[in-house]
């Protein structure tokens, strides 16, 4: 007979930061789109041939994005504080609590991440490592924190390009910093899509742990325990 156990997985502070970050990041991206609309020059294409433009007219129309630059800035420069503070709280907590040991990738993580990707694409049938976060997760969750830092830095560079001229120059100039800021936003959207797909795959027990902190595990009972 297997023995059920409740195992503590995600500490309260991490769960709070995670769930607070979700609407904050969504609002930052949304208000960012309102600002971006005023000079919507980015596209995927070659020369005069455009595969996809950010954003098509239908997108602006559907979501009512147009002519809301001032409102977008008011929101962006309001929620930026909460976004950054939440990020600082999260990083401080993971460092002080030692949780960072589960999160920061090791040399092994990169090899392991490839296996995780192959496994998830049904191309590799081996067993994945038995840890709170596997290599792919470690890279993704640490990477997204670095992205957050990147958004703050590139954001500052386009917010005060003269006062922080050294930062703006370091990032390749005003237009480069703006593009980097935009790319990072695209990165969050990509992260979000993969994250949701993986959470759905991992199942209820895994999702519940991010809400209540505990997961249910079952262990083989052995006589010599």
């Amino acid at each position: 007979m297997r023995r059920m156990e409740m195992r503590a997985k995600h500490p309260l502070a991490i769960r709070w930061c995670h769930w607070v970050n979700f609407p904050l990041l969504a609002l930052m991206i949304w208000s960012g789109i309102l600002i971006y609309w005023a000079n919507d020059v980015y596209r995927v294409g070659l020369g005069s041939f455009t595969v996809f433009s950010f954003f098509p007219e239908g997108f602006y129309h559907t979501f009512g994005v147009s002519h809301r630059l001032a409102q977008g800035m008011a929101w962006h420069f309001f929620f930026m504080w909460f976004f950054v503070i939440n990020g600082i709280v999260y990083v401080t907590y993971t460092v002080l609590s030692g949780e960072w040991r589960c999160l920061v990738p090791t040399r092994e993580s990169f090899r392991e991440a490839v296996l995780v990707a192959l496994h998830d694409l049904r191309l590799w049938k081996g067993t994945l490592p038995e840890r709170k976060f596997n290599g792919a997760q470690q890279i993704a969750y640490s990477g997204v924190i670095l992205m957050g830092f990147g958004s703050m830095v590139t954001g500052l560079a386009i917010y005060k390009p003269t006062q922080l001229y050294w930062l703006t120059s370091l990032l390749g100039g005003y237009q480069a910093a703006r593009f980097e800021h935009f790319l990072l936003a695209l990165g969050y959207v990509t992260f979000f899509c993969v994250h949701i797909a993986q959470v759905v795959r991992a199942g209820w027990n895994n999702f519940r742990a991010m809400v209540c902190g505990y997961e249910l595990v079952s262990k083989e009972e052995s006589a010599n325990e």
């Binding site: 156990e5 994945l128 709170k132 795959r201 895994n206 595990v217």
Partner: peptide
Amino acid sequence: MREGEETPRTAAAENNA
């Protein structure tokens, strides 16, 4: 129900349980 990265019979599980 428990899939993906979690496996029950880990050394950590024994210690934390």
